[in-house]
Design a protein around this nucleic acid. Structure first.
Length: 503
RNA sequence: GGGUUGUUAGCUCAGUGGUAGAGCAGCUGGCUUUUAACCAGUUGGUCGCAGGUUCAAGUCCCGCACAGCCCA
């Protein structure tokens, strides 16, 4: 059955190449592991890119490279090929006059996509291209599948996502997105470590899913015969560490949410969360600004850039607005007094969404109206503060107003990028908030939180006042790499299974 | 979940109800400085899957799968 499926997408090109491979196997080790490249194309260009033909001749530099053959031009007794290694491409020149005749004949039958190694000295061609004049060349790894067409490359989005390896071979722009992703994550680590934060790892499998309002994935532990949930957020564990006295902690890791897929949602996504004792949501906003600026500089080298054709400016101090203020600022048809009336909000939301809101809780209605009318209009970075307490069950309430959480969310290009607050460290208040969540869950809200008794117990030992924040790494990478879809910044985004490959 | 567009050779794409096409890749031959090399010849198809209408379907109709975009 398996063999059947493997053969299913065989074609005559693959057949030809298998026959070539069979011949290679008869002569030598087909996939040898002895070739050691001494140079990389990027370094060669960097080091010798400014040397002219005479200078190259004078210094007589010999290099040894290995990589994938991307282009091949055979002209009788001499040929050119383009070799691509990790970072760049370089041209090689193979003349029958310079190498063994049998080897040259072999080379003529090697395919685009094959991985080869070559040694030779650098020179410039008539058209002034830096090129390696090959004196020894060998096939290192035979490629059985044809690469996409050399000019158009791979453009089918679905294939780019499903066969990312092929996308990375063919599309330098795609590779560059992922190089930037790595730089961004590295930059964030530096920001945190430089500020005295300790990088930690907390469980990915939770007995009680917590730290966010979201549907979890469920799995089962056989030996203990118990259900386990893939984590929706690390928050409650990181704050347990704050209770334990690790006073500045951060974690960059995956969260899992059992929700729909979209250009902004993948079921597993990467979050940075960080917590600092004796800090509050204002200090978290400052740190967030600093992290984003450093990440932009360290990856793309600028604080201003385009996202999907429109300028984004991270240089100016980020705007900061109350949630209700923001609604009114961007939707002047509303009055502040209206936004305190549930019946007004219900009728507005019904108009906007063409369905009756599922809740009559004031804070939830206000948040929903904000999401409907305002969120997408927040293009340049804007902190939204003064969230209703009902939608912030883990956040401290303001000292002078028990209805308002000391919480912010950061929006950029109309999307939520970060969420932080002064953490709720009053164990009795937290117990009450969990109880309210449980009531909502019992009333049918699948996303409401569970009661986490161990977390309350931890708070009962005393947690210092703490500020905490989460930043969506995938969305940050989208922003800084001008990527329209979250799938463009995740190597292997979740896809429905292919009908014919694994069935 | 709804709307919409797409799915044709390994890739990129044409295709007016009447014999399934091109370029690249592959194969054969030619060519000692090419640049998506070039020239000549040539192989390769379950037209996403399954039904229907029709003398005749890649093309029209229905359903399904997968994907893109928009909306929720």
């Amino acid at each position: 059955m398996l063999e059947n499926n493997i053969l299913q997408d065989e074609n005559h090109i693959i057949q030809e190449r298998r026959e070539k491979l069979t011949k290679i196997r008869q002569q030598k080790v087909a996939y040898p592991n002895h070739f050691k490249p001494k140079n990389r194309a990027f370094d060669i260009h960097k080091q010798y890119g400014d040397k002219n033909a005479e200078e190259l001749l004078a210094v007589n530099i010999e290099v040894t490279i290995a990589g994938r053959m991307m282009l091949k031009r055979v002209m009788g007794k001499a040929s050119f090929a383009t070799i691509q290694d990790g970072q760049a491409q370089i041209q090689i020149y193979i003349s029958k006059a310079n190498i063994d005749e049998a080897c040259y004949e072999d080379f003529k039958h090697w395919d685009i996509g094959d991985i080869i190694g070559a040694t030779g000295k650098l020179f410039r061609t008539k058209t002034n291209e830096l090129t390696i004049e090959v004196k020894a060349i060998e096939l290192i790894s035979k490629s059985l599948r044809p690469l996409p067409e050399k000019f158009h490359g791979l453009t089918d989005q679905e294939l780019c996502y499903r066969q990312r390896y092929l996308d990375l071979i063919m599309n330098q722009a795609s590779k560059s997105v992922f190089l930037n992703r790595s730089k961004i994550v590295q930059s964030i680590r530096e920001s945190m470590v430089n500020s005295g934060y300790l990088e930690v790892e907390t469980p990915m499998m939770h007995v009680i899913p917590g730290g966010a309002t979201a549907k979890p994935f469920v799995t089962h532990h056989n030996a203990l015969d118990m259900p386990l949930f893939l984590r929706i957020a690390p928050e409650l564990y990181l704050k347990r560490l704050i209770v334990g006295g690790l006073d500045r902690v951060f974690e960059i890791n995956r969260n899992f949410r059992n929700e729909g897929l979209s250009t902004r949602h993948n079921p597993e996504f990467t979050m940075l969360e960080f917590y600092e004792s004796y800090a509050d949501y204002h200090s978290m906003m400052s740190i967030t600004e600093a992290i984003l600026r450093k990440a932009a500089i360290d990856s793309i080298g600028s604080l201003t850039f385009e996202y999907q054709g429109r300028e984004v400016d991270l240089a100016k101090k980020f705007d900061c607005l109350g949630m209700l203020e923001a609604i009114i600022k961007y939707n002047p048809q509303y009055q502040m007094c209206d936004l305190a009336k549930p019946e007004f909000l219900i009728s507005e939301l019904a108009k906007l969404t063409h369905q009756k809101p599922k809740t009559d809780i004031l804070g939830l209605l206000q948040l929903e109206l904000f999401e409907e009318t305002t969120e997408t209009k927040l293009w340049n970075p804007t902190f939204i503060i003064n969230y209703p307490i009902e939608v912030s069950p883990l956040a401290r309430h303001a000292d002078n107003n028990s209805e308002i959480a000391e919480r912010f969310e950061l929006f950029v290009v109309g999307r939520e990028l970060a969420n932080g607050y002064s953490e709720l460290n009053d164990p009795e208040d937290q117990a009450m908030r969990f109880k309210k969540q449980v009531m909502q869950k019992n009333a049918g809200d699948e996303e409401a939180m569970h009661y986490d008794a161990d977390y309350v117990r931890a708070l009962e030992y005393g947690m210092p006042p703490t500020g905490g924040c989460g930043i969506g790494i995938d969305r940050l990478v989208m922003l800084l790499t001008n990527s329209p879809s979250i799938r463009d910044v995740i190597f292997f985004p979740h896809m429905r299974s292919e009908a014919d490959i694994n069935s």
